[in-house]
Design a binder for these strands. Structure first.
Lengths: 224, 224
DNA sequence: GATGCCGGATTGGTATACCGATGTGGTGGG
DNA sequence: CCCACCACATCGGTATACCAATCCGGCATC
C-alpha cells in the first residue's frame, strides 16, 4: 500500500503539474498547445501527456478545436452556467447531508477547514477550500452529486485561483463554510440550503470580479 | 469536414464496439479485462484501447480495482443514486427548456423521436431513446445540465439495454416523451417537471425489474 | 503433506518509431 | 507585385518495444 501508488504518482504528478501550469497562467488561456511541446517542456513521453490532456479536457481546462489542443479561455458564459448548475445541485446536496450526516463526518470536515484556514500556502488553501463543497456533497451519500460537485469545482478552479489572494475573502469563506456546516450539523436542511445559495452567489460575484480585474493580463483570446 | 472525422472514426468506432460489447453482455459484468486481451480481441493497438478504457471508466461501464480493469458490475445502489440525481436535475432542465426553447428546436426533437419510433433496430432505438433526454437538456441552454444528463443516461445505459425488448415499453416511452415535449412546447414548466418525474419513476421501475429478471444470467459478481 | 520460496508469465506504465494529414513558408510563374 | 503551388515541418493517431511490479505455479524443504 505504501509503494502501491508509486507508479501512479508520476502520472498524478504530471497531471498536477500541468494543472498547476494552467491555473497559474504559466500556460496562457487561449494558447494552442501541442503534445510534443508539452513532452519536451515536462520531460515525459507523449503517452502520459495524452492521458493527462484527456483528464484536463474533461475538467474543462483544455479544449480542442478540430485536431489540436488549446488552453481553455475564460468563458464567462460557461462560468454563469456552472454557477446556475451548482445552485441546482448543491442545495439538494446539503439538504440530504443535513438528514444523513454522522457527527464524526461533520467533525472531520470541520477540522479540515480549520486546518486549511491556519495554513497560509495559497495552493493548499485553494485545494482545501474547494474540497469543502465536495466533502459536503459526500455527506449526501449520492455519488452522482459528489462527482457533479467535483466537476463544478474543477470548472471554476482557475477563476477562483485568480481570486484567492485576498485575506478578507479567505476569512469570509471560512465563516460561511463554518455556518453551512453548523446548519448541516443542526439538521436544518432548509437553512443549510439557503446558506449554500447565499455562499454561491457571493463566490460568483467574487469570481467574476477577479476575471474582470485580470482581463488585461490575459490576451484577447483568453476571455470569451 | 467530410473526411475530417476519418481519423476519429476508427477511435470512435472502437469505443462504440467496446461499449456495445459491454452493453450486450458479450463482456460479462464483473469480469476482469486486460488491455492486451482487448488488443487481440478488437485487433487494434493498446494505445486506442487505453483511451477507450478511460472513456468507459468515466462512463461507469468499466471499473478499476488496483491496477487491473474489470467490467463494471450492475450496482443497484448506484442506479438508485443515479435516478435520485436525475430527479434533481431533470425537472429543472425541463423548466428551463419550457421557458427558453424555440419552436424549431422542439420540432427537431419531435421528428427525431417519431423517427426512432418507426425504426425497429434496437440499437438505433436505444440511442434515440436516450438521446431524447439529452436533447431536452440542451434546450435549457446550460452545458452543465447537458453533460450531467449525458452522464446519467450513460450510467443507466446498460440497465436500459436489458429492458429495451418490450414493444409495450417502447410505446409507453414514446408516449411519455411526446407528452413531455408537448408540455415544454406549451411553456408549462411545472407540468413538464411533473411529467419528467413521473417518467423517471416509471423507467426506474422498469430498469430495476429488468436487472432482477437478468440476475440469473449474470454471475454473482455481476450484480452488487 | 503442508508450507514457503523462487522463477517465469502477464500486467499496466512508459518511451519511441512510424504514418497520413494539415498547415505553412518559400519560390517560381503570371 | 501578387498569386498559386509545392516541399517540408509539424501535428495527432497508431503500433510496438521495453520496463518494473505483481501474480501464479511448481518445486524443494521441513
Amino acid at each position: 500500500m505504501i509503494a502501491e501508488t508509486a507508479h501512479q504518482t508520476e502520472e498524478r504528478d504530471l497531471l498536477s503539474r500541468l494543472r498547476f501550469a494552467i491555473l497559474s497562467l504559466d500556460l496562457v488561456p487561449g494558447e494552442a498547445i501541442s503534445e510534443r511541446a508539452l513532452e519536451q517542456q515536462f520531460e515525459v513521453s507523449r503517452t502520459p501527456i495524452r492521458e493527462a490532456l484527456l483528464h484536463l479536457l474533461r475538467d474543462g481546462l483544455v479544449v480542442r478545436d478540430g485536431r489540436s489542443y488549446a488552453i481553455a479561455p475564460f468563458d464567462i458564459a460557461e462560468i454563469d452556467e456552472v454557477f446556475a448548475f451548482r445552485d441546482i445541485i448543491e442545495p439538494e446536496a446539503v439538504r440530504l447531508a443535513a438528514k444523513l450526516a454522522r457527527p464524526d463526518e461533520i467533525a472531520a470536515i470541520r477540522s479540515s477547514i480549520n486546518l486549511s484556514h491556519d495554513e497560509f500556502t495559497p495552493e493548499r488553501w485553494l485545494e482545501m477550500g474547494l474540497d469543502f463543497h465536495v466533502r459536503c456533497a459526500q455527506l449526501s451519500r449520492n455519488r452522482c452529486l459528489v462527482t457533479a460537485m467535483q466537476d463544478v469545482t474543477l470548472r471554476t478552479l482557475r477563476a477562483r485561483w485568480l481570486s484567492f489572494a485576498s485575506e478578507e475573502g479567505r476569512k469570509t469563506t471560512h465563516r460561511e463554510h463554518t455556518e453551512i456546516l453548523d446548519l448541516i450539523e443542526a439538521g436544518d436542511a432548509e437553512g443549510a440550503a439557503r446558506a449554500v445559495l447565499a455562499h454561491s452567489a457571493a463566490v460568483r460575484r467574487e469570481v467574476l470580479q477577479a476575471i474582470e480585474n485580470a482581463r488585461r493580463f490575459i490576451g484577447r483570446r483568453g476571455v470569451v
